[in-house]
């Protein structure tokens, strides 16, 4: 794991994967809610802070305005690399967690058979 990068927050991860196609602020909120099956609802302050941080890091960029003059954003190459790294990290967590849980289940199953 790349310690210096650190883990992304759930909000940031969802915002980044939402921006593979250009979206304006509220579009991001709607897309994140849809992607997470309604579980993650971003507040306006959360989105505003995250968008500014991501712009500062160069992970997203402004890509013009939509028809009604709303600013739209899109993920950059650096942002895409970050998403890939984070997805690998999450996959590693998931694999390790599942493997250990299955081992634990087997040990418990053997213990019950022995008794």
């Amino acid at each position: 794991m790349n310690e210096s990068k650190g883990a992304l927050t759930e909000a940031v991860y969802y915002i980044l994967i939402s921006l593979y196609s250009p979206l304006h602020g509220y579009g991001v909120i709607q897309n994140v809610e849809k992607l997470s099956g309604g579980r993650v609802r971003l507040g306006a302050g959360t989105l505003y802070g995250a968008l500014n941080n991501l712009l500062g890091k160069g992970w997203i960029m402004e890509c013009g305005e939509s028809g009604d003059r709303k600013k739209e954003y899109i993920i950059t190459e650096a942002g895409k690399r970050t998403v890939l790294d984070e997805t690998d990290r999450l996959q590693e967590l998931l694999d390790n967690g599942r493997r250990l849980l299955e081992q634990q289940k087997r040990i418990e199953g053997k213990g019950q058979q022995a008794t």
Partner: peptide, 13 residues
């Protein structure tokens, strides 16, 4: 629900 800051970072901010 109407919350403006929904994550820890924005609440700290």
């Amino acid at each position: 629900d109407f919350e403006i800051n929904t994550d820890i970072d924005s609440l700290i901010f």
